[in-house]
Simulated assay, not measured.
Amino acid sequence: MNSSLLLSLAITGGLVLAVIVAYNAWTLHRNAPKKALPPDTHGSLPGAGDALTEPTLRQEPSLDADLGPEAAAIYGGLDRGPEPHEHAVDANDALRMPAPLPMLERRPGLDPLIDVIAVMQLDHQVSGDAALVALPPTRRAGSKPFAIEGLNDATQHWETPAPGQRYRSFQAGVQLANRMGALNEIEFSEFVMKAQGFADAINAAPDFPDMLQEVARARELDQFASDHDAQLMFMLRARQAAWSPGYLLQNAARVGFVVGSMPGRLVLPSSAPGMPPVLTLGYDTQAALADDPDQSAIRDISLSLDVAQVHRTEQPFARLRDVGAALAQAMDGVLCDQNGQPLPAMAMDPIAADLELLYDQLDARDLSAGSVLARRLFS
């Protein structure tokens, strides 16, 4: 009798132990970071076409107004931002290519709209080689970009001095403002010293504008830039199982991202070569550099848009929304604001209207998003 009872208890205990071991194994398997599918496995995002079944990650190409209260929970610090539209989303939508960017815009280089410019008159020609020797060793005055250009005697175009060319006039410039703030009196004085040193070396007579007027102009431009600077960030958070780097890269490639120049960074390239990326995807750098990436667990990623750096014809916010929705569906994630709070669809519509207004205000100031001057000012 006792032996039968002990045997029953032993069997019951063994069964309970087996159940516990099986449950723990199942839990570990369920919560283990999701891994990328093998190369010969034709996985695809919902609604994706055959072109998305075998993505290849490329390398990132190298680069040559107050918003409404609805957006407040999404932005932090200088961050202000854009919005998605209500329509069905699939991976093909996320990859749609916008219309070609307009080519008519201000030329690169110094521009009186955002630069202090001092013209240097000469009574003789100066070779590009001599000008290069006379250039100051640094290209900044404080935190502001500093540059010297020459009027090419053959082309009659302003350009950075180049060997073998001849110049009869030069101009020096320093940027009025950037994301570090407005040009101040100390930076203006450094600009004058650098420009005067170059002028003395080539026997030129510089004509400097009034410091107080230029500093006041810098503060006004900086105020405008601060009021119209929009940097939007969303977060995609795993609902249950975490993601391995390989799994993330595989899914991101399917919606157009390529490997960025830094670990833990992917970018959605612009439709125009040499332009800043449309969107940036960020994840944990340590996971990106791990010796065994399959064992690294990523529970959230960031999707960000620097509005002033991307032309509105790229439809960057619509693409941000589409990419976020496609990745959330494919990877079992939830789209959140930068504080980790889930984003309801109703929060998106007001942001779109605010963003269109911001674009219009930048256009009116001749600082259109994605233009040369906007990319310089908002940097």
Rank of each mutant, 00 (worst) to 15 (best):
S4V: 11
S8K: 11
A18Y: 09
V21W: 07
A22T: 09
K34E: 12
L45A: 10
G49K: 07
D50V: 12
A51S: 14
R58C: 08
S62A: 15
L63S: 07
A73N: 09
G76K: 12
H87R: 14
A88Y: 09
N92T: 14
A99V: 14
M103Q: 12
R106D: 14
R106Y: 04
R107Y: 05
G109K: 05
D111T: 01
A118E: 00
A131T: 02
A134V: 02
A134K: 02
L135M: 15
F146L: 10
I148R: 02
I148G: 02
I148A: 03
E149F: 01
D153G: 15
A162D: 04
Y167F: 15
R168T: 10
A172K: 00
V174K: 00
V174G: 01
L176G: 04
F188L: 10
K194H: 11
Q196R: 13
A204Y: 04
A205H: 07
D207M: 08
D210P: 00
Q213S: 13
V215Y: 02
F234M: 13
R237H: 08
R239G: 00
A241D: 06
A241P: 06
L248D: 07
N251I: 00
A252K: 05
V255I: 14
V259Y: 10
V259I: 08
V259H: 11
S261G: 08
L281Q: 08
L289N: 12
Q295A: 14
A297V: 03
D300V: 05
V307G: 00
A318W: 05
A318F: 09
V323W: 01
A328L: 02
A328S: 15
D332G: 05
V334H: 03
V334D: 06
L335G: 03
C336M: 02
N339V: 06
P342F: 02
L343P: 06
P344Q: 13
P344R: 14
M348S: 09
L355Q: 14
E356Y: 05
D363A: 11
R365E: 15
D366Y: 01
L377H: 05
